[in-house]
Computed example of a mutant assay.
Amino acid sequence: MYRFIDTGKNNGAMNMAIDEALLIAQANFGTPPVLRVYQFEPPTLSIGYFQSANKEVDFENLKIMGFDFVRRPTGGRAVLHDKELTYSITIAYPNKILEMNLLDSFHFLSKGIIRAIEIMGGNAYFSQSEDKEVSSPSCFASPTFSDILMNGKKVVGSAQMRNKFGLLQHGSILYKVDIESIFKCFKLEEKQRERLIEIGKHKISSLSDELRREVGFKDIKETLKKGMEEVLGEKMVESNLTKEELEIAYDLYKNKYNTLEWNFMK
């Protein structure tokens, strides 16, 4: 059994805090693994654990656009969380999925997303190579061999980390996308920005664009639940955050994800 939790909309720091809190709570209290779905309010630029905020992020443009900012606990490149369903999967030790290596478990869990898109009528698949054409701080501008594509364009980007508690995988499933906004988030020369926007139009897409019909959060939420149940062979039981999970999340929000030390540590 997996718990299935929709936590609605939160800012970037709280969303990262909840993800980590779910994993810690599982390890400490023995609760079942969790598939969580959520959104960001306001839209938020999250950077990977190893990225430099000061070197790469254009904070003036973020302020003008009204976007938030946070550092993720996972690696990878920056992601603008806007018109998307964000998901996270948290699995504590012991679990058979944690017996797989990181890449195998990543692909296994991601198959639930591919299955969800199939249920919606689309054909999604893993990228077979890393994109060498473009170097960008943006995750969606630089597809890797582990990203999910439709018709050659990236529609899902994910990252996974492991620690002493277990596994956290989270990612973005785009139902709409604004290519220009993505590249306004970064420190780029104007000619470079214009070039990346044009390249991005050929490499980044959304479920609504590729399915050629309007798709929203609720549509993806229901099909993701079904797709994950099929792939994992586990029942998704709707749940809410527990008192203990909320307490851990608020502590992580206050003392980690909402601090300058964390967000600007590199």
Rank of each mutant, 00 (worst) to 15 (best):
F4V: 08
F4H: 01
N11R: 07
A17V: 09
A21Y: 05
N28L: 09
P33L: 07
Q51C: 10
N54E: 15
K55H: 13
E60S: 11
E60A: 10
N61C: 05
K63N: 03
R71P: 10
G75Q: 11
G76N: 12
A78K: 05
H81M: 03
A92E: 09
Y93F: 14
P94I: 06
N95P: 06
K96N: 01
I97H: 06
I97Y: 10
E99N: 13
S105C: 13
S110T: 09
I114R: 05
A116K: 06
E118M: 11
G122N: 03
A124K: 02
Q128F: 05
V134M: 14
V134G: 02
S135E: 15
S135M: 10
S136E: 07
S136M: 09
P137D: 07
S146Y: 14
V155M: 03
N163E: 08
L167C: 04
L167F: 08
L168A: 00
L168G: 01
Q169F: 02
L174Y: 11
L174R: 12
I179P: 06
S181C: 09
K184Q: 13
C185D: 09
F186W: 10
E190V: 11
K191C: 04
E194F: 12
S208Q: 10
S208E: 06
L211W: 03
R212S: 14
R212N: 13
R213V: 10
E214P: 00
E229L: 04
G233C: 07
E234F: 01
M236G: 02
L241S: 12
K243T: 11
L246A: 10
A249R: 06
A249D: 07
A249V: 07
